[in-house]
Computed example of a mutant assay.
Amino acid sequence: MNLHLDGKKVLVTGGSKGIGLAIAKAFKEEGALVGIVGRDGDLLKQVADAQGFTPFQGDVTEKEDRERIFSGFLKQFGTIDVLVNNAGGSNGSSVMETNISTFEQAMHLNYISAVHLSQLAGAVMKERGEGSIVQISSIFGRESGGKPTYNASKAALISFTKSFADEMISHGVRVNGIAPGSILHETGNWKKRMEQDPEKIAAFVEQNIPAGRFGTVEEVADAVVFIASKRASWISGATLNVDGGQSYSF
């Protein structure tokens, strides 16, 4: 299937490892020109050089960095066709054991950064009359399986996706989301947990994932590339679960 992404300018936050790196690779395989964002400048450059991406170093929790990154992307590529807000993370513990500042940090990383970058990209896309924004949320944005800070920030992102999609679709800009379930990769938490207690994690998979295994970063990336493409032209405001049935087992 031709996704018509050849030559498209794509920006992926958190693109130097894990799901973000797989997303960046998938767009490049479709012929897109890809910029990736990361905090670790050395890792970012190493990955960008190896894969043929353009690196943009910065911390997306910082307003000035977001503006600098986006301005740099426009200077490099001239415009933006696709934005993928993938940067995120999980922190804290139970509600009563988590300081309010940790909730604030989670919102800045998982939600505010995506909102601001969506505004910046949306302004350019609206003027051009086309574009696609994809938010990487989580099935835990609809459930309570993750840490409360993570659940709340991802739930906010899912809600924002719907609101912004309604606002932008009349201007030719589609806003959608992908909600991964438990994904296994080398730099992720599930890999660490599996190494620490393989029996416990095997039991988790058996009890919680009907497909009988963890998902892969490539499976998430395939969904992102499709929903960002014109082949998904009638999809707007959706957040698609990519979880092997995990969300239906709760």
Score class of each variant (00 low, 15 high):
65 D>A: 02
174 R>C: 00
123 A>W: 00
190 W>P: 07
25 K>G: 04
149 T>Y: 08
231 R>L: 12
242 V>P: 12
19 I>Q: 11
126 K>M: 07
38 G>R: 01
69 I>T: 00
222 D>W: 08
56 F>H: 14
239 T>K: 09
30 E>Q: 14
17 K>W: 08
123 A>V: 08
250 F>P: 02
164 F>L: 15
121 A>S: 12
36 I>S: 01
116 H>R: 09
166 D>F: 00
19 I>K: 03
12 V>N: 02
102 T>I: 15
4 H>W: 05
62 E>S: 11
206 E>Y: 11
175 V>D: 05
176 N>Y: 01
203 A>C: 01
122 G>W: 05
121 A>F: 09
112 I>Y: 12
249 S>F: 09
166 D>N: 05
166 D>K: 10
166 D>Q: 09
106 A>Q: 03
248 Y>G: 12
131 G>C: 08
187 T>A: 14
57 Q>A: 11
208 N>S: 15
89 G>N: 03
110 N>K: 00
125 M>E: 05
156 A>C: 06
201 I>H: 00
104 E>C: 01
35 G>M: 12
188 G>L: 13
141 G>Q: 08
240 L>W: 00
69 I>W: 08
28 K>S: 13
62 E>P: 02
228 A>M: 04
51 Q>D: 11
119 Q>K: 15
147 K>W: 01
31 G>Q: 10
145 G>A: 10
65 D>V: 01
90 S>A: 14
196 Q>R: 04
238 A>V: 15
